[in-house]
Design a protein around this nucleic acid. Structure first.
Lengths: 187, 187
DNA sequence: AGTTAATGTTAACTTTGTAAACATAATAAC
DNA sequence: GTTATTATGTTTACAAAGTTAACATTAACT
């Protein structure tokens, strides 16, 4: 025994996930992951097509956590948005994979494409319910705005942390996400 | 002659810039740039400390163009924002370097840090003039929201192009940037 | 038991960033 | 004007990282 491991694929994904808790995706490399798994560098390729395939796995995990946690907070728009922002701050590097400019060819991973689209659909549906008199086109435009604002503020908050350039206003925003959203995007 | 070139540093920067017109920064590599310049792969290191140093040069060029063009449009907030967005769409990869999550250690390039901060300061100053009764803190919060929204919509528009997933609403937004801003962020 | 498929290993190739040693040209010092 | 110094370009070489190919071992099925 010890030639064949148990659940090596899952183990790889978990190791990569752990790395991405504190470091960026670029810092994940096959040799490093393999070593942590106590296995030779190329065992990886028995379980994943390539590095992007591992990335896809992390993205799936990310969406799972994001949507799982969302169940508890969909009572109103602001808490929904706040949850989203919090996820972006809690898992900054995973968030990058999920919503950053992925060089991943999404058409190769239809399930991910669907998960990704679901975020936006959620906004659209929510807005429709909230402002039923608005035209479809205006709903869409508003939805893009909501999406842009939420995404944008994640990036700003995150970066301000990384660069150690925090202002009082940023502190307040991060500690009062719902209020912030109510007084800006959802006003 | 032909051992020493004229303005090789500038030439490198221009070649890299041209590449970034259509391809991402990752696609810029020393050998490729050197070859286009008709020079050996390592001549590069006589003019730049490392690859990041070249990136910094492109960022400078980018800020120059962005702020240069801004002179013509600072009559009102929406046209200011629209100009910004247009820049992001015209130079998507340069935009990434300037405002994306750069792994560049900005403290090594103080001039860039200043150029980068100037964007945000512009928003703050503009808002102050526009709503003089607002508290400083509220101005800042609003400024972050403006910044997030504009940045976010650049990313959305850009990505929708790259992924070939355009909706009518997106077309409209891109063709009516000022109106879009007026009905969302600057309303 | 023997064949096959799955999984792990080793070796090797490729790309790319970068350093070191060397060569040549331009400039400054005498 | 010859020489020393500096700037700039070349060649060689190495390291990191993604990936492929060939080989080894274990498991699984007949």
């Amino acid at each position: 025994m010890s030639y064949h491991k148990e659940n090596l694929k899952e183990q790889f994904a978990e190791i990569a996930w752990d790395i991405c808790k504190t470091e960026s995706w670029q810092k994940v490399n096959m040799r490093r992951v393999a070593q942590k798994a106590g296995v030779s560098n190329n065992a990886f390729y028995r379980h994943f097509k390539d590095k992007n395939d591992l990335k896809a796995e992390l993205m799936r995990k990310g969406f799972e956590i994001l949507y799982e946690g969302m169940k508890d907070v969909t009572n109103n728009f602001s808490s929904y948005g706040a949850h989203y922002i919090r996820f972006g701050l809690d898992y900054p590097h995973i968030y990058d994979l999920m919503f950053g400019n992925t060089d991943l060819d999404m058409s190769l991973y239809p399930d991910l494409e669907a998960l990704s689209d679901a975020s936006f659909s959620g906004i659209v549906e929510g807005l429709k319910a909230f402002m039923p008199d608005e035209s479809d086109n205006d709903i869409m435009i508003k939805a893009y705005n909501v999406w842009a604002s939420v995404h944008g503020i994640v990036l700003i908050l995150r970066r301000s942390k990384w660069e150690g350039k925090r202002t009082e206003a940023l502190e307040w925003i991060e500690n009062n996400l719902e209020d912030y959203l109510k007084m800006t995007t959802f006003r």
